[in-house]
Design a protein around this nucleic acid. Structure first.
Lengths: 199, 199
DNA sequence: CCTTCAGGTTAACGACCGCTAACCTCCCTG
DNA sequence: CAGGGAGGTTAGCGGTCGTTAACCTGAAGG
């Protein structure tokens, strides 16, 4: 991934603001004029950069899913020397970083998927599924007692746990990013361990 | 709570279908005609039962928050003889039951709050806060090592975990309700325990 | 210096949507 | 058997919203 030191393009500004607004008020709750105003231009000016409102949402959601999957694959490759526990820790860390850095995107990720065109929705679903399966494989290596369907349920539930950051109040009310990250990490590991232990 | 054996009223039918549709496509994504069609009448007929579309959402969200809080208070009172661990188990069980039985409502609960009138939103937020504080108190009795802000973050995160049921696929793909409930329960306890353990 | 084009602008159209108005039809009750 | 209210219906109004059309402007390039 090229380190981006250059200023964000207009397209990127639009995507960022659109993500924030969609997350705050929902896709249908935000007008194109508002998105335009958020970047200093007016509504129809957006159409110089995107084919339509739907296209912005599609690019956002595909981007999120792809970014999550790509990051996970990279971490899997990088930590290949370590034990499975370290790989799982790396996956958890990556997901937490994403959830803390891009809260609006995390919110969108499981909220507005149905508004996509069929082809885009299928693509996003496929990327999501790959991401989940990647987690499931790692989790089952760390906790071999878990059956595959149970591991999948556990992974989804831990995603729910990690994605709870938007509900943790505005940054400042929570005890600092580092502490929050550590707390979430410990809880995720604890949840997996408990899922694996016999009833 | 009176045991309801009588048939659901038209109002209740409408609320149930509206909840399902709102959860599926978002508040702004559903038209009044669709809600009417879902109960066999046409759009404007709804206005014999509700002041408007907003009123349906308000009644749903206030109802959810109130139901959760009331149930939690009842469980707290009933299990007062037992240890704090049993009380926490009871709270977890109640929340899981609700999440499994009323998936659309759980989805709405943290998704459409901003569409409410100020007064309704304040009411819902107050009920939610009471519910959280009730959990925080119980959790801190079971895990005294937890500071209050940490316990609150942990509670929010466990809600995220328990509310993940809508993402677990349609009922049938998951290993049965009892097993799912037990898995979520174990994971929630494991997450709290891990939150409490030193880093 | 003229052209071109990227990236804006405002005006306006067409569709949709929440809601009201006006009307209809049972069913219950005095 | 009047009549009135509960619970529907359809027609239509008013506003909003996504999108397009038409036009403008400043900077780059030959």
């Amino acid at each position: 991934m090229a380190t981006r030191t250059d200023a964000p393009t207009r397209r990127e500004q639009i995507l960022k603001e659109a993500a924030r607004l969609f997350a705050e008020r929902g896709f249908h709750g935000v007008g194109v004029d508002e998105i335009g105003a958020a970047v200093g231009i007016s509504g129809p000016g957006l159409y110089r950069h995107f084919a339509g409102k739907d296209a912005m949402l599609a690019e956002l959601l595909v981007g999120i899913s792809g970014q999550l999957l790509t990051g996970a694959k990279r971490r899997l490759a990088e930590a290949d020397g370590g034990g499975p526990g370290e790989v799982l820790d790396s996956l958890i860390e990556g997901h937490i970083d994403f959830a803390l850095d891009d809260r609006p995107l995390i919110t969108l990720h499981d909220r507005e998927l149905d508004r996509l065109r069929d082809s885009d929705r299928k693509l996003v679903r496929q990327l999501q599924r790959q991401y989940v399966e990647l987690w499931v494989d790692v989790v089952r290596k760390v906790y071999p007692a878990l059956t595959e369907p149970t591991a999948r349920s556990a992974v989804h539930s831990v995603f729910g746990l990690l994605n709870s950051t938007p509900h943790l109040g505005r940054p400042g009310s929570l005890p600092g990013r580092g502490a929050t990250s550590e707390l979430l990490h410990r809880m995720a590991r604890g949840a997996f361990a408990a899922a694996s232990s016999e009833a």
